[in-house]
Design a protein around this nucleic acid. Sequence first.
DNA 1: CAGCGGCCTGCCCATCAGGCTAGTTCCCGA
DNA 2: TCGGGAACTAGCCTGATGGGCAGGCCGCTG
Lengths: 125, 125
Amino acid sequence: MSEAASPVIVVAIEIADPGLADRLASLLGVVSGLRLAAPGEAATVALISRDAPTAVDVSDIDLTPRERDVLVLMAEGASNKAIARQLGISVHTAKFHVASLLDKLDATGRTDAVAHAARLGVINL
Amino acid sequence: MSEAASPVIVVAIEIADPGLADRLASLLGVVSGLRLAAPGEAATVALISRDAPTAVDVSDIDLTPRERDVLVLMAEGASNKAIARQLGISVHTAKFHVASLLDKLDATGRTDAVAHAARLGVINL
DNA sequence: CAGCGGCCTGCCCATCAGGCTAGTTCCCGA
DNA sequence: TCGGGAACTAGCCTGATGGGCAGGCCGCTG
């Protein structure tokens, strides 16, 4: 079980900075138990840059708990009716929250709102 | 050559699978030149899961050039009217392409389509 | 207590979205 | 030369969407 459960972990390095990528490749190249992915190879995990955009601290967009609930459902393509049903509220209330979301996310519509939220890291697609 | 000039690379492990995350932590913990990030710490790079849940490679979805045009505009929250105007086509044609997109992306609506496309890496939000 | 913000509901209404069928060109490959 | 796919246009129609307005309930705080 132990050996079968521990295949070599394939790591893809997806970092724009050549210097950093190279350094990581060197460091990880000698680690047994994992290996670097060939270009285009399906990797188990990926190494991505994290300090570049430095995560728009805008993540502090203050959404109420309910708004976050609505937002994730919206991101799944749920209609107001579906949101209402899944949250146990009325369609009117769902629309209320959606409207509030559009306002806070500075979006023109629900599609735009989801895109903005994803860009800001408020939600994970 | 790199030891003096290269600060330790801080790696954040952002993987849902506890077993995999733990294994990676063990493997990377002993690598000199990098160290794991403390929870909430700003890391240089992040390790994220890559084994696609549905393993749909980007190339699997063949969108026509026009459909890609429409898709990116949709991702920006553009309405059919806006898409039509920016692409110099009629609203009917815009809707035609959107419908085709919904079909190919297996989405129920434009919001869902954008979310799917983003998830699949067809577009970058 | 009074005020406030979050949450919920209702109704009206203009617009948009998406599904339908049906037609046109252009261009590529059999 | 013909078939077929891509791109484009069009009409019609139902349901969804989003904005505006007004109200009620609850918990917290000045």
